[in-house]
Design a protein around this nucleic acid. Sequence first.
DNA 1: AACTCGGGGCA
DNA 2: TGCCCAGAGTT
Length: 216
Amino acid sequence: MIIKNPSEVAVILELLSQAYPQAHCELNFTTPFELLVATVLSAQSTDQRVNKVTARLFAQHRTPAEFLRLSQADLEAEIQEIGLFRSKAKNILAACRALREEFGGAVPRTLPELMSLPGVGRKTAKVVLSNAFGIPALAVDTHVFRVANRLGLAQSTRVEETERQLEAVIPREQWIQTHHRLIWHGRRRCGARKPACEGCTLQAHCEYFCLEHRPK
DNA sequence: AACTCGGGGCA
DNA sequence: TGCCCAGAGTT
């Protein structure tokens, strides 16, 4: 197991905070419900495309009750420029019915309750918990998974285990910020295909960089 | 844990 | 055409 020790983890977290001091959720929302919808829409899409769609959508529909005035065909038309729009429209309306019938129209604040909603998996549920309610949660998506493993904050081929390792090694009060910084790093520099290692301030602490640049 | 689903954008 | 995009659900 090559997971880094607490002192080196602290150094990495500090370097990340210096590199991405402003890292934050880039989905636009004003209520927990809006974030829930935006996050469901963002799966296999980009926040830029999602924001474009939700700007129009949320101007007219802001609550489960208001969404339920839309037919599935209406909603599909509204979100058509986002991928997977058919299943997303169906899931969002089903989630709105569940919110109305099981949670009094409010977005629940626990992981199992959120995950019981159609179209809401572990990652989406954690994004809502952390960004809408400020409840510490570390969601592992493709960026977090890749970057955390490259940096040696985790060492696993499985998402669940990566999540446990990150939660063990990162102080709880830093989960939310760190989550955003790992994603920003993954998107802006440490991409899947060709990471821009040149000029990266994390080189000295990166297992991936060491592996690729080790003298043969 | 592996597999399936599934759509727009961009090279 | 092939690959990516801040996954979810089923087996």
